[in-house]
Design a protein around this nucleic acid. Structure first.
Lengths: 366, 366
DNA sequence: GACGTAACGCAACAGCGTTGGCTTACTCTG
DNA sequence: CAGAGTAAGCCAACGCTGTTGCGTTACGTC
């Protein structure tokens, strides 16, 4: 998959610095050598070398100079968005939504396809490949790969859809491997809510270092970014906030427990009680804040858009109550900026992240 | 605080490797150069250099040789537990419990002191310093510092106890700074449940990379280790699982919300319904598993010991129900091995971790 | 006692960021 | 309108990391 393990740890130092410079460059129009030196905590001379590599790879360029007093004017640098592209596909049971994005995560083209029935796996792969190939026509930069985001238990490491207990024709499908063979491109598979969060963090690096993204589609998901790392969990099953119990002995849920947030939420909506539904969402959010202390909460997903102002108000109210003893804590609640493309864009950004993101730990004890 | 920021990123490579070798060495009796090379993914020759540094610092030594066929026998290496020490203090409103541990986290000596009333801050610092100095008499290795673990909102970065809304004489106390001035040693301050988890991870590195520690003392806390990193959160307030709502519209909690796990738990115990209390604990645990997908749950804390077998059973049952759709997921539930010393040991291990732990990310985009 | 084998050390090497000195390009002063 | 002052940026040497290639050591086997 693209990034081969470097032979030497020195490559990792370089790789991490390259990624860090790109991350800084992504969040502004142009940056100076001095800005970057400050951000990365290295000398300006080192920045010159790093920029030399990045310019050589075509992902950054000079962007004019500015004079800020006596002395040689500062050279500015900026990212070259069109230098790289990635495809993102959002797969659900009824629809495939696809996008191509540039290196900054901006959408170059979007497509949407209704699938009438649950296709068998080989047909599904072909459908995905067709969409991907159509999207690959748009734009000019090097195409890095395709990301797929879908609901349900997904094994990120293996690229396999695990499936649910109900009869499910996609259960166990090696979507990554099959699509890779079909496309001849690197493919990544991830859970929809996690893909969405990667997308949000990619376009605004550093802002969501401790954040939760609550995704309300058919079910409810919540993915976490803690200390800058997306949480995937031991079996890459993290994010099932919908199966978190908020009312013990409440309504039965498909998962076998009672009072799961998702079951209660749907029951409330079916009863027409939108206010209660919003309160349930708010309960999840405050629970998250108490548990992992995120300072930003992003709301997204098809369903939440129709009720978003009520949801946001309920969440803000609940936070005010739950945090009244800690006035120094502020939690910013916001709506996703990507609308219905959220997950497709996020899946594409997972590819960008994989190739140009900051590598995780330098070493582990095996 | 001990570890000064290295001038060059190459120091970080070295530091990370040194820490990784120590982590491997901590989990076994002795290791060979080849074992370490495999674990760290570097060449045996690099291991020789790393071991050279560590032996020079006195934290590792040769530990004989073994012959496993023809050829030169393998040299074994092991950690030198007695080479370093750290003090840990567990502070509550009524008691100070203290330990000295060696480099592997083994207890060399323990002390316990009842404090009759809520002492004002200067007196409290003196009490802590007295305990620390008494503990410092035991053992011989270099004394790295003292860690303090306490319940309630704690600012880990600043070393300040934030305090609750109720009148609280300790509120806002710069415990780290004051104790540092008193002792002339590095001091670390952390939330009790997070300290406990650091302690558990220190003595069995790698085992708890995705784990939760549920601490039941006066309140309920739950700290997380995700992908090998302890979760502290944006304001270092993570871990308040007790203020997670498990029964919307349930009994009122001191925090202002209704149906918080902690309030429900206490209500159940007061009603003599231990089975319900265990179910509440189990609900928190399954919620955690669904949300962040930990594969190990450690139970600890004063209160949980009296009910532990009922609690463990309830948790295992609830997990079996909640995860019945994912038979490939196994969550190991275990009791802390450190008993009532859990938090004091953990606080001491935070000091060891700070000095000899694997550094976090190599770089961040500032 | 000679041979094959496996662990290990030494020395040269590549590549990272750092350091100190020099060049470039601008503003300000007389 | 030169000349001084200033700040940005390049070049070359350097220290440090792990890597590589080759020689040394210490064992079992024939």
């Amino acid at each position: 998959m693209g990034a081969v393990r470097p032979t030497t740890p020195l490559d990792r130092v370089a790789g991490a610095h390259d990624a860090a410079v790109l991350a800084v460059a992504r969040r502004g129009d142009s940056v100076s050598r001095a800005d970057l030196a400050r951000a990365l905590q290295v000398t300006p001379q080192a920045i010159s070398k790093i920029l030399g590599r990045l310019i050589g790879r075509g992902v950054m360029t000079e962007a004019g100079t500015i004079v800020s007093g006596p002395g040689k004017p500062t050279t500015l640098y900026r990212i070259v968005p069109s230098s790289r592209r990635a495809i993102g596909l959002h797969l659900t049971r009824s629809r495939v939504r696809g996008v191509v994005v540039d290196l900054t995560g901006e959408i170059l083209e979007r497509r949407e396809l209704e699938i009438g029935r649950l296709q068998p796996v080989p047909e599904l792969i072909e459908t995905l490949a067709l969409e991907a190939r159509a999207l690959a026509e748009v734009g000019s930069g090097e195409l890095l790969g395709a990301g797929v985001g879908m609901p349900g238990p997904v094994d990120w490491g293996e690229g396999v859809y695990r499936g649910t207990a109900q009869p499910d024709p996609w259960r166990g499908a090696s979507i990554r491997q099959l699509l890779l063979e079909e496309l001849g491109l690197p493919v990544l598979l991830d859970h929809d809510s996690r893909a969405a969060l990667v997308g949000e963090t990619w376009s605004q690096p550093g802002l969501l270092d401790d954040a939760a993204l609550v995704l309300v589609e058919d079910g409810i998901g919540a993915s976490l970014c803690l200390d800058g790392n997306i949480v995937r969990g031991a079996h890459s099953h993290a994010g099932e906030a919908g199966h978190t119990v908020v009312r013990m002995d409440g309504v039965p849920c498909s998962c076998g427990r009672h009072g799961c947030a998702q079951a209660e939420y749907q029951a409330a909506l079916e009863a027409g009680d939108e206010e209660l539904a919003a309160r349930i969402l708010a309960t999840i959010v405050v629970n998250l804040v108490r548990l992992v202390d995120v300072d930003r909460v992003v709301l997204g997903g098809r369903t939440v858009y129709t009720h978003h102002s009520a949801s946001m108000d309920a969440i803000r109210d609940a936070l005010a109550v739950g945090l009244r003893a800690e006035p120094w804590v502020h939690v910013e609640v916001m709506l996703s900026t990507r609308g219905t493309d959220l997950i497709a864009v996020g899946a594409a950004c997972e590819v960008l992240e994989h190739e140009y993101g900051i590598p995780q730990a330098l070493v582990g004890p095996g």
